[in-house]
């Protein structure tokens, strides 16, 4: 062990980064694995400057969480963020990063935007993605 005064600091800071929701803390740390400068998963996904490749990585990571999460909360949040990452690509880049059908996507986006407990930024991105999809404005990712 070397210089504990310096080395212990980042580990102790994990406690301060932990929110009241363990599932949200988990998604934040997954987002940081994808983009180390990310403040949270939502911040990363809704930022118009986040490239499609990063949103694709988010989509895959949250799909994995949906299937393999430790708790019901983990899996539920994973499903919402999976859809949100697709919505972000569609709303901010007009790009479809999934092979899901339009019907399935509309259903997923609607579920986010009508959820009054969801973060307002997620609801907004879901609404804009729904609109983009309905208007046929999106392209398909290579």
């Amino acid at each position: 062990m070397t210089d504990p005064e310096r080395t212990a600091v980042p580990i102790l800071e994990w406690v301060l980064q932990s929110g009241s929701s363990p599932a949200i803390t988990l998604t934040t740390w997954i987002a940081k694995e994808i983009e180390p400068s990310a403040v949270s998963a939502i911040d990363l996904m809704v930022d118009p400057k986040t490239p499609c490749a990063t949103l694709l990585a988010c989509k895959d990571a949250f799909k994995h969480l949906t299937l393999d999460g430790e708790t019901v909360d983990d899996r539920t949040l994973g499903a919402v963020y999976y859809a949100a990452s697709i919505a972000a690509a569609m709303a901010n880049h007009r790009t479809r990063i999934t092979r899901q059908s339009s019907h399935a996507l509309e259903h997923a986006f609607r579920n986010i935007w009508i959820d009054e407990s969801a973060d307002l930024r997620l609801r907004d991105i879901a609404w804009r993605a729904f609109f983009t999809l309905r208007m046929g404005l999106e392209a398909t990712a290579d």
């Binding site: 102790l12 406690v15 988990l26 740390w29 997954i30 694995e33 994808i34 990571a61 393999d68």
Partner: peptide, 25 residues
């Protein structure tokens, strides 16, 4: 098979470690 598996494990174990740290404190 994929990098997202590693990302999920890192995040999950970090959460578990932080919980253990908070339990000690």
């Amino acid at each position: 098979s994929s990098a997202v598996q590693v990302a999920n494990i890192v995040a999950r174990m970090k959460r578990r470690f932080t919980a253990a740290l908070m339990a000690q404190l």
